[in-house]
Design a protein around this nucleic acid. Sequence first.
DNA 1: CTGAAAGCGCTTACAG
DNA 2: CTGAAAGCGCTTACAG
Lengths: 357, 357
Amino acid sequence: MYLQMDRDRTITDTMTTKKATIKDIANEAGVSIALVSFVMSNQGKDPDERLYKVSEETSRRILEIAKRLDYHPNNAARTLRRGKTNTIGVVLSDISNKFFADIARCIEDRAYKYDYTVIFGSTDENAAKLENLVKVLVDRGIDGLIIVPCAGSEKFIASVADSHIPMVLMDRSVDNVDVSTVVLDNRAALSLAVSTLVDSGCSRIEMIGYDMPLSNAIEREEGYCRAMARFGLEENIAVHRIDFRNIEQQVREVVGEAVGRGVEAFVFGTNTLTISGLKVLDSLGIKVPEQVRVVGFDDSEAFELYRTSVAYISQPIEQFGQESFDLLMKHIRNRDMQSMTVTLKPHLVEGKSSSKI
Amino acid sequence: MYLQMDRDRTITDTMTTKKATIKDIANEAGVSIALVSFVMSNQGKDPDERLYKVSEETSRRILEIAKRLDYHPNNAARTLRRGKTNTIGVVLSDISNKFFADIARCIEDRAYKYDYTVIFGSTDENAAKLENLVKVLVDRGIDGLIIVPCAGSEKFIASVADSHIPMVLMDRSVDNVDVSTVVLDNRAALSLAVSTLVDSGCSRIEMIGYDMPLSNAIEREEGYCRAMARFGLEENIAVHRIDFRNIEQQVREVVGEAVGRGVEAFVFGTNTLTISGLKVLDSLGIKVPEQVRVVGFDDSEAFELYRTSVAYISQPIEQFGQESFDLLMKHIRNRDMQSMTVTLKPHLVEGKSSSKI
DNA sequence: CTGAAAGCGCTTACAG
DNA sequence: CTGAAAGCGCTTACAG
């Protein structure tokens, strides 16, 4: 019991031992806090670029004391003074979704390199949640935002753009808003998917996508339709739009019905839909690619495992993360920069299910 | 060109229109900034708990002006004054790994509820990176840390614990350090795995885990060995330790060799190993469960898809996130709290590959 | 080469 | 019920 109390007292003591500040260093070194601040802030800088010269000896002494006192600049004070947080907010659909988790990781790495901190938020495709998240982040004082817009958030996105907070949209674009955007060439992606299937002898190819008014969903549909038309398969065009709140059941119905009609191949519009579709096909006892061919979307460990593996459209994840971050940095550094759109190229990963038999 | 300039000027104007502060509100309302601050900080609070009473009318007027001026408290100033950031750091292995991504999502949701912001960092099982990340986060001034320790980080973890920064370890424990921890009952998990396989008629069951001195890896091995012993299968015990930097190749060798020896079943120690193992089995043309049975670890969309699906140990992801966060909150609120360990229960998700034929 | 001082926006005893 | 004032830790002209 006594031991316990001693231990607690020690904890409290340590707690009240405040962290060292520039004031402590200044006292110890017998110089002004201004000098300490200056030395601390000009560490890595090229001597010629420094505003003032500090004598080698003083500088060294200050640095040494700082080290001894285990000095760490107070971030809040610095932020308050500088008006810059070195933090960005990243608002995406769901960070537990593999596609976004992968991108998150790339952004994290890149931000770390640039001495930026990133705060993630998931919207679950809910516009109210997106709005709330962005507000919280802005209140926190982020320097910029990377946002995956969701259906219904268009007006709010426009208002954020108007407020001139540095911002980059990712994965999906929003019409009539002057904002930088990083997206996939979705039409090219679906064109790739259709071509592959046509090459392998299919003509009854149907698409399964989301029933959401999102740029990427719309463009993927368009890409599918155009590609089908290009191959003279207009009459086989069929797009099934799935409500993302009820994926499992709807995919089951759609796939079951389509297979019954003798469809030869499916193109799925997202990774979640692909997984769901493969499960359904499996449970129906339908063999891929023997009975039905499949082209999925996004990388998934599942695709490689699925029987002799399915083919899928692979998005350049790293580029998504990097380009979004880099573009945001540019906007942060130059607030007057023109907004721009970066379009990334997809590529097709062949699986036996799409190749010629 | 002129239009362009006009546009830029507007941007600049907007930019220099500074955000409203309590001072602006005070001026507008004809009261002191102290009063404004007080009103703003006691919004939701029970009137009886408020330190002072402010006249209804004044309060309402201030709130109204705040709203009109779109006032948002400056986070940096508040933090500087309060010495509390309402931000926690979460350092995990790799946020793009499904297991951690899922947990991250749970922590994010929970933190959001409690008005906390969370900053994630990935270590890639690299102790130096972990150390660096934690230092950056502490410099940023987080209120607490959730850490997935990696091999080699033990001493550093101990030093962080000594500094009395509120901290919770997750997924893995560290010996001889007085720190709260949330872990899976790994022995129970492997016991479940082995029992299931024995039930389905296997006796030549081998385990494939990581070659890492981590508590969870060690406990899973122990769990496997004990369970095998309990069933009188001591002589069949075989644990294969994989170097996590070279998973693919090593798993290929180990699995290939074991199958050659007529092994009946594999227990994999993590999701990554399971995926890797299933790929190898597939590429070797070995049918699961007909030729070899498999019990994997962690949920993966891939498992359900894998042929007639494999069985796997499912970890309670939500609890991992929630318990870790809640425990950390307790430590933040009560700095003298005794550290404690929360052990979560695994459960087995049956797949046809493990069930009796 | 170095120091004194103002100020970033907020909170919190203290005084009335 | 309300105000004046100090101070959180830092940066940045300004002055010498």
